[in-house]
């Protein structure tokens, strides 16, 4: 664990060329009552192949931050660079998986994925695109549900389709916005494990928003905890040291797990407790 007073300095120790660089990012929304500062001076460097989780109370601007990486939003000040190039608009190199799946209800599972593949790889032949679609659906275990429509499958399966779709276009960063928030506990754990397996195999860079401390501790390499808005910034970053591949039972019995969990709890409930109204 490290308390980041100067995150850039700490991260520069790694010496790697930063893959994703978020530097002094601020976001200000003009409102009728005046300017509203959502984020202020956010600094974060993500290495290639890293799994980063972002946690914070609602309204802490974590979604805004992710939107800037996906390109749906742009910073008012500072910069967001991917491989040294500024991010200005959404693109297939940064694929987002939303909590509410965002599947087209009138298309089958196969067509939903194939649509993305065709849009991103127009130069590939139909057979190649078919192969990509099928292999990605196979990866998430949906071979048999391929011809079903989203309305006919469970929430967990929908989210699997969504993940397959995101991965099928080979993004450089996978962005997950509370992907498992709407699922029941059992399905949630299954999907977490599947996501980890896929990630471990492909070492794709992942940025994920979550509300669930246990989920974050199980999945990520670093847990980024945001302070409360307005003018939210990164309050603390926890390094999650568990060996990979991770087995849930082992992680949860690791004494370090309890320590990290309590640190996160302390940050969220004590030091940056959220008081509505």
């Amino acid at each position: 664990m490290q308390t980041l007073t100067n995150p850039i300095a700490v991260n520069s120790k790694t010496g790697d060329q930063p893959f994703l660089l978020i530097e002094e990012v601020g976001k200000v929304y003009p409102t009728k009552k005046g300017d509203y500062t959502v984020l202020d001076g956010v600094n974060l460097t993500v290495k290639e192949g890293e799994f980063v989780c972002v946690i914070g109370h609602s309204g802490c601007g974590k979604s805004t931050l992710l939107d800037m990486v996906s390109g749906f939003n742009t910073p008012t000040s500072g910069k967001v660079l991917l491989n040294g190039k500024p991010i200005t608009k959404p693109g297939p190199d940064r694929m987002v998986v939303f909590q509410n799946y965002c599947l087209l209800p009138w298309k089958t599972v196969y067509e939903n994925v194939n649509l993305a593949v065709s849009a991103v790889f127009p130069e590939k032949s139909k057979a190649e695109r078919d192969e990509i679609t099928r292999s990605n659906l196979h990866m998430v275990g949906l071979d048999e549900a391929m011809n079903k429509k989203p309305g006919q499958i469970s929430g967990g399966m929908k989210q699997r389709v969504s993940i397959a779709r995101a991965l099928s276009i080979r993004p450089e960063i996978l962005i997950l916005d509370e992907p498992f928030g709407a699922l029941d506990a059992i399905t949630k754990e299954e999907l977490q494990e599947e996501l980890l397996e896929i990630w471990e195999e492909h070492r794709i860079t992942v940025m994920m928003i979550t509300h669930d401390i246990d989920e974050a501790l199980f999945l990520c390499d670093r847990l980024v905890m945001m302070s409360n808005g307005p003018s939210a910034k990164i309050g603390e970053i926890l390094e999650i040291p568990f060996d990979r591949p991770r087995v849930r039972e082992e992680v949860m019995e690791d004494p370090r797990y309890f320590k990290l969990r309590n640190q996160a709890l302390d940050f969220l409930y004590n030091r940056f407790a959220h008081h509505e109204d």
């Binding site: 590939k124 192969e131 990866m139 039972e249």
Partner: peptide
């Protein structure tokens, strides 16, 4: 000890996958 006396769950297709493309 955790006693697992259940036959191993059927191997999911997920566990033997490879990404094309």
């Amino acid at each position: 000890e955790e006693i697992v006396f259940e036959e191993a769950p059927a191997p999911r297709s997920l566990r033997s996958k490879s990404l094309a493309a």
